[in-house]
Simulated assay, not measured.
Amino acid sequence: MASLNNRSSSRQSAVDAGEEELAVSSRRSETLPTHKEGSEKQKLPPVFHVNPAGESGRSGVDLIPFLKICVRSTCVVSMVVNILWPFVIPAIVIHFARPDLHVWTFALNYIAMVPTANLLGFAGGELSKKLPKVPGILLETTLSSVVEIVLMMTLITNSSPSNNLVPVIQAAILGSILANLLFCLGMCFYAGGMRRDEQVFHAAVSEVGSGLLLVAGFGLLIPSAYYSALSGSTNGNTFTLDQLLANTRTISRATSVILLIAFLT
C-alpha cells in the first residue's frame, strides 16, 4: 500500500509539474512570439530559394557560392531585380564623365539603387539569422535603411542658405514613416487576407511597431510645429529669427537623440 501511495503521489507531482510548465510556456507565448520549429519549416512556399536558416556550415569565403546565393536571393521578385545590375557601372561613369546631364544621372542612379538596396536587405536578413534575435533585428533594420540614411546625409551636406534642402529632408522622412505605417502595413493585410478568412496578429509586436512609428512622426512634427507657431512672433529686439532657428535646432537635436535611444532600447 505504501508503494502504491508513493507511485500515485509521484505521478500526481509529475502531472502538476507538467501543468505548471505548460502554464509558464503559455504565459511566455502571450508576451512575445516564438520561432516556429519542427515540421512547420517544411511548409514554406516554393518561392524561397535560400534556406531560411541561412547558408551556415561553411568556413572562409568562397566567391562562386557567394555569387550564386546573391543571385538566387530570397524570392522570385528579388531574383528578377538582379537584372538591373548592369545599370550600376553606367550610373557611376556618367556621374564623373558628364555631371551636366542631371536627368540621366538621376535616372541611372535611381535604377542602380534598386538592386543594390535589394542585395543589402537580403544580406542583412541572412546576417541577422546568425545573431541573437534582438541584435539581429536591429542590424537588419539598420541595413535596410541605409538608402534613406545616405540620402539624408547627402541632402544635409549639400544644403546651404541659398539652396535650402531641409524641407526636402523633412518630406523624405515623413514619406518614409507614412510608407511603413500605412502602405507596408496595408499591403501586409491585403496579401495575408488573400488566402485566409481570418488573420491573427500578435498584440505586443503590432503595438510596439505602430507606437515607434508614431513616435518618429511626432519627433518630426514637434520642431516644425514650434517653428511654425513662433515664426510670426519674431521681432528685431527681444526675439529674433536667429534665436528662433537656434531654439528649433536645439529641439530637433534633442528629439533625434531621444529617437536614437528609443531605437536602441
Results as ranks from 00 to 15, higher is better:
S3C: 05
L4W: 10
N5G: 07
N5D: 03
N6Y: 12
N6W: 13
S10P: 08
S10F: 13
E20F: 13
A23E: 11
S26H: 11
S29L: 11
L32M: 14
T34Q: 12
G38R: 06
S39F: 14
K43C: 07
P45R: 04
P46D: 04
V47E: 02
S56M: 11
S56F: 14
G57W: 06
R58C: 09
S59E: 02
G60N: 02
V61D: 07
I64A: 14
L67A: 08
K68E: 05
I69N: 09
I69P: 00
S73W: 04
S78R: 03
V81C: 15
V81H: 07
L84G: 11
W85F: 14
A91N: 05
V93L: 15
V93G: 13
V93Q: 11
I94G: 11
A97M: 12
I111E: 04
G125Y: 03
G125L: 03
S128Q: 06
P135Q: 04
L138S: 02
L139K: 03
E140Q: 07
T141E: 04
T142I: 07
T157E: 13
S159W: 06
S162R: 12
L165W: 04
V168N: 02
Q170E: 00
Q170W: 05
L174T: 05
L181A: 07
L182W: 09
Y190K: 06
Y190P: 00
Y190T: 03
E198P: 00
F201H: 06
V205F: 10
E207V: 09
E207K: 13
E207S: 11
L212N: 10
L213V: 00
L214I: 13
G219I: 01
G219R: 04
L220S: 12
S231D: 02
N237V: 09
T238N: 13
D242V: 00
T248M: 10
T250S: 15
I251H: 13
A254D: 02
S256V: 05
V257C: 14
F263K: 03
